[in-house]
Design a protein around this nucleic acid. Structure first.
Length: 654
RNA sequence: GGCGAGGUAGCUCAGUCGGUCAGAGCAUGCGGCUCAUAUCCGCAGUGUCGGGGGUUCAAUUCCCUCCCUCGCUACCA
């Protein structure tokens, strides 16, 4: 029996679940169910990632301990799966004692084998640029900008000798086409690996800076860097090294991630496994983002309520169908309720639901609600069966490679062909002409195909599939379904069995409200990225209020109002503007502001702005900056901060 | 700026190792059926396959170049 181990990333508990998390979970669930039907033993793992700086800070802001905070958010993720009809076999948390032990075991092992070393983080530091330079970047040992000799500064940390496995990883990827898919991401990783030497990975943080993490077994002054901790969940969940689950399911791992965490999974993780003496996983499956139409909803609650609301409104089956049908594997897709409704009506209500219902109704009308016996097979029957066979094979082949959209598209060729077949055979005419034998065959062909379709849909729409089969008088029985044989097998549906009189599993739906007017006015803002599967370590706005400061701290800020007298693009940077602001001083202040992506120079000239006047001067990309221009922003817009009326240049903000 | 991915019917996309490859679904128009969830079936489209240049008997498919979009990355104090 083949083993199939499917995982979602463990979700970072710095934000609540949203559409992206829901999708990854649904995809993993569909894959798990698909492989179960294919006769494999499947194990589906999900969970939460709970260590790191951001969690420490967020919990502090919330007035909770990190663990309390993590418990709370982790619970939200644990509740996500049932909402979308997913059934993970296990929910792991990186704060689980077993996981912590495993991480320490692996750290110790890799340390002892010599692939973790104590080194210095940093290097050649140029005070002019305020940054570190690598040996390669220096020109004759001098800073390329300032032509001065940088000073060597270091912070001690532990490093994983990732560079050692670069060549091995390149070979492995080349030899295993399915290792990273779809191919675009495989190519991306290969070009990343082949473009230059891989740096070793810093895997520790000094406890002086961060305590919320797993302590290094060989140095109690440090905790483990979150990625090294998080990735190991995939084996700690299986009770590595001695657990039965581990022996069963490793290395049959099929990871599912969104594209934002490609590098850690495609580079860090395999090299970590290699260093720890483990087999690499089987495949990494990378999907794109869901783009979400921007509405007021996202401002207050984010996309948080979306999955729940969609499921409440349309049902888990329909929601899952839409997501799995709409997103081309690897590409971004756009989520709008209009598209959802359109898809449900066209594919589920019109094509499938109506087909199913008309088939049941005719069975009742012509055969008293019992599955008729088939008689002689006509050519049109054989043709349909052949088409169905190809459609089901297409479904299985595509689904096996995570191309769910194409798989469903393929299956729908059968659904549409069935509607056409009914039209061509015209059972109502056969009935009128009393050709009952032929009519029985036609109805049997339709019903048996309906059963096949229902079986194939179980991974995608488990509830609906089970109900369809019940209505066909064939209660769902996992042990009796052998999906690989379904395309060819015939005659499973038993004659004489009673079917339901009608079916309304896929009713037509309507948009709850007319299109929001906001959609029209700002097409540029229409699609907005929803970062799926946010993983550790992207900088992000603080989750809660910052800690309190004293009034005297505030007084340290010298905030001034000034008029922008000129603004131009930074000669050497895309996102920077070089702005001159009159602050009532002899010369206008030159401020370098990171606003070029949101403002053009003309937007600024002549405006009064608020400037932090006593910010230590600093060079940004070679240009002196003597202050900072303040802006106000939310998820969608950035606005200049200014006084409500005119103020003399240099006026103080207090 | 560097690296990567992409620009094909109104929309979402498929496809071409160069020669019935110009396609599917949705949306639109017209016609048909009545078993059915105002459903289903048939027919009809429209496209300079991003612009320009090159290679070739032949390019949407190969090469060069330009434009645009997206992602990663650097500068965002």
């Amino acid at each position: 029996m083949n083993r199939f181990f499917v995982t979602t990333p463990i979700f970072y508990v710095n934000a609540k679940p949203h559409l992206g998390h829901a999708f990854t979970t649904i995809l993993a669930d569909a894959q798990s169910r698909f492989h179960t039907l294919m006769g494999d033993e499947s194990y589906f793992l999900t969970g939460t990632d709970e260590h790191g700086d951001k969690i420490a800070k967020a919990s502090e802001a919330a007035g909770q301990s990190p663990k309390e905070y993590a418990d709370q958010i982790s619970g939200l993720f644990r509740d996500l799966a049932p909402v979308v009809g997913a059934k993970p076999n296990q929910f792991i948390r990186t704060t689980d004692p077993d996981h912590i032990k495993t991480v320490q075991k692996v750290l110790q092992k890799v340390y002892e084998s010599g692939d973790i070393y104590f080194g210095e983080y940093g290097g050649h530091y140029c005070f002019g640029c305020e940054r570190f330079y690598t040996e390669k970047e220096l020109v004759d040992g001098m800073c390329p900008d300032h032509k001065t000799k940088p000073e060597y500064i270091a912070e001690k940390n532990y490093f994983f000798r990732m560079s050692k496995y670069q060549g091995w990883l390149i070979d492995h990827i080349n030899e295993h086409p399915e290792f990273i898919r779809p191919a675009r991401y495989r190519n991306e990783v290969l070009s990343l690996l082949e473009s230059g030497a891989l740096e070793d990975l810093c895997i520790s943080r000094p406890k002086s800076r961060l305590t919320w993490g797993i302590e290094l077994p060989f140095d109690p002054d440090f905790v483990c860097y979150v990625w090294f901790d998080a990735l190991l969940n995939y084996v700690s969940a299986l009770n590595y090294p001695r657990g039965d689950k581990f022996k069963k399911f490793w290395p049959a791992a099929n990871h599912i991630v969104a594209k934002d965490i490609l590098k850690p999974h495609a580079v860090f993780w395999p090299t970590m496994l290699k260093a720890a003496g483990l087999q690499p996983y089987q495949s990494l499956n990378v999907h794109g983002y869901w783009l979400v139409r921007d509405t007021k909803m996202s401002k207050s609650l984010g996309n948080v309520v979306e999955p729940k609301r969609m499921v409440d409104t349309y049902g888990a089956s329909a929601f899952r169908y839409f997501l799995l049908r709409e997103m081309a594997f690897g590409s971004d897709a756009s989520f709008t309720e209009e598209a959802l409704v359109g898809r449900l009506n066209a594919d589920l209500a019109n094509d499938l639901g109506n087909l199913f219902n008309r088939a049941l109704a005719m069975t009742h009308k012509y055969f008293d609600g019992k599955v008729p016996s088939p008689a002689e097979e006509f050519q049109e029957d054989a043709e349909l069966k052949h088409l169905g066979l190809e459609a089901m094979q297409g479904f299985q082949e595509n689904f096996a490679e995570f191309r769910t959209a194409r798989g469903l598209e393929s299956l729908w060729e059968l659904v549409r062909a069935l509607n056409k077949y009914i039209d061509q055979t015209a059972p109502w005419t056969l009935y009128k002409n009393k050709q009952m034998a032929r009519l029985g065959t036609v109805m049997y062909v339709v019903l048996e195909h309906m059963r096949k379709v229902a079986v194939h849909l179980w991974p995608v729409m488990p509830e609906a599939s089970v109900k369809m089969l019940e209505q066909l008088g064939m209660p769902f029985d996992l042990d009796k379904i052998v999906l690989p044989k379904e395309p060819e097998v015939w005659g499973v549906l038993e004659s004489g069995v009673a079917v339901a009189a009608t079916s309304n599993l896929f009713p037509r739906v309507e948009l709850p409200e007319p299109t929001p007017p906001a959609a029209k006015e700002a097409p540029a803002l229409e699609a907005k990225k929803s970062k799926a599967d946010k993983a550790p370590k992207e900088p992000q706005a603080p989750a809660g209020p910052l800690e309190n400061i004293e009034f005297t701290d505030f007084q340290k800020l010298d905030l001034r109002v000034g008029t922008v007298v000129s603004a131009e693009k930074h000669p050497d940077a895309d996102k920077l503007l070089v702005v001159k602001v009159a602050l009532g001083e002899a010369e206008p202040r030159q401020v370098v502001a990171g606003l070029a992506d949101r403002f053009s120079p003309e937007d600024l000239v002549g405006k009064q702005v608020v400037v932090v006047a006593n910010l230590a001067p600093r060079k940004l990309r070679g240009v002196q900056s003597q202050g900072m221009i303040l802006v106000a922003k939310d998820a969608e817009v950035t606005r200049l901060l200014t006084a409500a009326g005119a103020v003399d240049d240099g006026g103080k903000v207090a």
